[in-house]
Design a protein around this nucleic acid. Structure first.
Length: 269
DNA sequence: AGTACGTCCTGATCGC
DNA sequence: TGCGATCAGGACGTAC
């Protein structure tokens, strides 16, 4: 569930912890069969000696600009990053450890092993197939509506399509659609511009609200989605039959592709 | 272009 | 209480 807000919180956490400026001295991979299964591992062995200059985010991707090259991190579904001191016990599912020149380290811990770390020439290698960030100031309500109306797919699927715009996943897509009163099953080219602009505002408010929530709960910054994904960031219950927070009617679920959408048939049409 | 579905992975939860 | 089946999810590949 790390989506845009959680990754943004992770980015700020790393910046606050002064990860930018550090030189990577050593990388360790604890990943069975790592050479054959992890894309770019050969590249990671080239990390030692490189300095982390800055950390950006586009969608769900963390982009670490190095003095030479770029380190791309993606948390997949359960990945998290924790900045650790020399005496700290390793985390339970650490897959990569990045050691720094100040003796600290960052562990990428991931139960399901879908997280990725890639050393690439430039950020372009990571963002080639990504649309603009969902919170990109250049993405106005009008542009958002234009992007969506140019497609014909189901709106739920489109919101999660990272090549259209990046950062929204299953949970915040459902949340934004509920806020905007739009059914996840609607065809994107058959939604009025007015409704799409409402959806854009709902999406922005949902994402920014979630970032604010995490900022106000500092304990969750390193692993914001591990604690409890269904906290105050989320209004819509992800459970069949649960009451809609607005009309108290039963929440329903339906699959689009292999993703489950939760929605209220009373509030969303 | 749009859509479904399999794959990766494993802890949590469900149903009997 | 136990245990097997199912679910969850991001990204990508394949098939239609």
């Amino acid at each position: 569930m790390p989506e845009l807000p959680e990754i943004e919180a992770l980015r700020r956490y790393l910046v606050t912890a002064r990860v930018p400026g550090r030189v990577i001295t050593r990388v360790r991979a604890d990943w069975p069969g790592v050479e054959s299964t992890v894309d770019g591992m050969a590249g990671l062995s080239n990390l030692p000696g490189r300095r982390i200059e800055s950390i950006q985010r586009q969608g769900k991707h963390l982009i670490l600009s190095l003095d030479r090259g770029t380190l791309g991190l993606h948390m997949g579904m359960t990945g998290r990053l924790v900045v650790m001191d020399p005496g700290d016990e390793p985390l339970r599912y650490t897959r990569y450890t990045f050691h720094f020149d100040d003796e600290r380290r960052v562990e990428l811990d991931d139960v399901r092993r879908w997280a990725t770390a890639r050393l690439v020439e430039s950020a372009e290698n990571l963002t080639r197939n990504l649309g603009p960030d969902a919170l990109d100031p250049g993405l106005t309500a009008r542009k958002f509506a234009t992007l969506i109306r140019g497609r014909k797919s189901v709106i739920k699927t489109l919101l999660m399509d990272q090549s259209v715009f990046a950062g929204v996943g299953n949970i915040y897509a459902d949340e934004a659609l509920h806020r905007a009163g739009i059914s996840p099953a609607r065809r994107s080219n058959r939604i009025s511009t007015t409704s799409l602009e409402r959806l854009y505002r709902a999406m922005v408010e949902t994402l920014e609200g979630a970032i604010d929530f995490i900022e106000n709960h500092p304990d969750e910054r390193a692993s914001p989605y591990v604690v409890n994904a269904y906290d105050e960031r989320i209004r819509l219950p992800r459970k069949n039959g649960a009451p809609c927070p607005d009309c108290r009617g039963p929440i329903r679920s339906r699959k689009f592709g292999n993703r489950t959408a939760y929605y209220c048939t009373g509030c969303q049409s």
